[in-house]
Amino acid sequence: MNVLIVGANGQIGQHLVDELKDEGKHKPVAFVRKEEQVEKFKEQDVEARLGNLEDSVDEIKERMADIDAVVFTAGSGGSTGSDKTLLIDLDGAVKVIEATKASGIDRFVMVSAFGADDRDRWNEELKPYYVAKHFADMWLMDSSLNYTIVRPGMLENKETIGKVLAKDVITDSDVFSIPRVDVAKVLAASLENENTYHKSFDLVTGDKSVEDALNGL
């Protein structure tokens, strides 16, 4: 499959590009917003397409030619205000969902946030972010797309552990974090794993291989 990675220049996105390249089953296509990022991926022999999540649905759709699946890893980042959270994490995600549907693409994998499905679990300091993730996820679930929503715990820049816990809701784990590289491994494995179709789940470091954890959903 040709997999469009929205937010490919972000940390999870870059790990996912590397994961797909290394496994050789799917071709990563980077969706990025700066020309220098396009050039960076070209130097890595990765196709890159220039676009912006504040563009129109039609403009985003133009970047989806010959794409078989979309993975949304984009985010406004912790240094921006609530306005950008609204425009990128919510409206940007919704526009990508709408462009995906309009392009006739069926498969959509979303990176959400741990506990975004339940208001009682939201971090009050990050409430606008959780609101954005919550309603973007709802929009995706209400679409006709074959979705998977991955809600990772606290993201860490560590080497891969390779063992995860994936459940509808995780409240009983000793660990509530996960390396970004392991999130990317789960995203890659989810693309064709039918146990993840039309499912959303929390994700943290655990004691099962990625394959076993996803097969147990």
Rank of each mutant, 00 (worst) to 15 (best):
M1N: 12
M1K: 15
N2T: 08
N2L: 08
G7Y: 03
Q11M: 15
I12H: 03
D22A: 15
K27S: 13
A30E: 08
V32A: 07
E39S: 15
G51A: 15
N52F: 05
E54V: 12
D55S: 13
D58Y: 05
E59N: 12
D68P: 01
D68H: 02
V71E: 00
V71K: 01
T73C: 12
G77T: 10
L86C: 09
L86E: 09
L87W: 06
L87E: 13
I88Q: 03
L90V: 06
V94D: 11
V96F: 13
T100P: 07
A102P: 09
G104R: 08
D106S: 15
D106W: 04
F108D: 02
F108P: 00
V109R: 01
G115T: 11
W122H: 13
L126E: 15
Y130F: 15
A132R: 04
M138H: 13
M138D: 14
I149L: 07
P152H: 05
N157C: 00
N157H: 04
K158E: 08
E159L: 02
E159K: 09
E159I: 02
I161H: 10
K163P: 00
I170S: 03
S177C: 01
V183H: 12
L191P: 10
E192S: 11
N195F: 02
K199W: 00
F201H: 05
V204C: 04
D207I: 01
S209N: 08
L214I: 07
N215F: 05
